[in-house]
């Protein structure tokens, strides 16, 4: 086990290395990012099942689809700004339309990339990926959950997108917690509002819920690690129970988790929703804390949103 603060990309790296021994048809590809995406250990131990594509992501996705058509499970690794960033058509046609067993693993998603700035902060990837038929979209919240998510996607057939962060983050889940694709985890139960968060925003949502308790506001917190397919049952249940929803994600407000939940609830049980997300802006360089604060992704922004949402009930 790693120390307390570690990244979701490291969780993926450990899991893929562990699974490789048993899963002989597993092939890992990268586009000159083996160390950054944490597949360097896999590459060293299993060179015949590791494919270095150079900085050519479009070819990488095509190769992966070809490998999968021939019966392999292909895992591509790159940054979110490149896959899906510059490979939309390859993912849509080669992977999703062919409906093959390709797992697209993207690290450096969200604003937590920090100092590299806007060009390297993937903020539109959820929106892009969740519009693709046949695609499953997973966004784990910490190291432990990233390990479980990696094992889960390799246990199912078909296209998947695994969204990972670069920064180290506090571990908020436990080894014994259940992880099931398409089943959201309720972390806290409160009657006044529900915060539905994904990725590193789960940690912020928990912090916000504790802060709200001081003001006698009891919020539920849901870890929505699977963005597609959404856990409709749990989300509708908590919309009914609390009648106020705040979504939280490290992503553009347009088309992300919040959008998915708004689509679901407007069809089933409309309640006030507030969105914690980047509001139609590019990111920039800075420390993670500076960026979370500036783009209103921190716990204080979440508590404010919860209070606003409760007023709108």
């Amino acid at each position: 086990m790693k120390e307390k603060n570690t990244s979701t990309r490291e969780g993926f790296g450990e899991a893929i290395f562990e699974i490789a021994k048993k899963k002989k048809d597993l092939i890992v590809l990268t586009a000159d990012l083996r160390e950054s995406t944490k597949v360097d250990k896999f590459a060293k131990k299993y060179p015949s099942r590791f494919i270095e594509c150079g900085v050519a992501e479009q070819n990488m996705i095509g190769l992966a689809a070809g490998l999968a058509l021939a019966g392999k499970t292909a895992v591509t690794t790159s940054f979110g700004v490149f896959t899906p960033g510059r490979t939309l058509d390859q993912i849509k046609i080669n992977v999703c339309y062919n409906d093959v067993d390709v797992k697209i693993v993207a690290t450096h998603c969200g604003i937590n990339v920090g100092k590299d700035g806007a060009t390297h902060q993937a903020l539109t990837d959820i929106a892009v990926m969740r519009t693709m038929p046949n695609m499953t979209v997973i966004s784990p919240c910490d190291f432990i959950e990233a390990k479980k998510a990696t094992k889960a996607i390799l246990g199912m057939k078909g296209p998947c997108y695994l969204r990972l962060g670069r920064a180290k983050m506090r571990i908020v889940t436990k080894e014994k917690d259940r992880f099931e694709i398409g089943k959201a985890n309720v972390l806290m139960k409160g009657k006044d509002a529900t915060i539905i968060a994904t990725g590193y925003m789960v940690e912020k949502a928990l912090k916000a819920a504790f802060l709200l308790k001081k003001d006698k506001i009891h919020a539920s917190v849901i870890n929505c690690h699977t963005i597609k397919p959404l856990d409709k049952k749990t989300i509708i249940e908590y919309a009914k129970k609390t009648k106020a929803i705040v979504t939280a994600e490290e992503h553009e407000v347009n088309g992300g988790l919040g959008g998915a939940i708004a689509e679901l609830l407007s069809n089933n049980f409309p309640v006030p929703i507030e969105f914690i997300a980047v509001k139609d802006k590019f990111g920039q360089s800075g420390t993670i804390d500076e960026l979370y604060k500036h783009y209103e992704l921190d716990e204080n922004s979440i508590t404010k949103a919860v209070k606003n949402c409760i007023k709108r009930k």
Binding site: S48, G62, L63, L67, L69, A70, G71, I93
Partner: peptide, 25 residues
């Protein structure tokens, strides 16, 4: 037909991926 196609530029990569898999096997 082995793979969907239509948008140009996509399928030489698919062919190479298949060729790699055949070699591995």
């Amino acid at each position: 037909i082995e793979s969907s196609s239509g948008p140009l530029g996509l399928n030489l990569s698919i062919a190479i991926g298949q060729a790699l898999a055949l070699k591995m096997d």
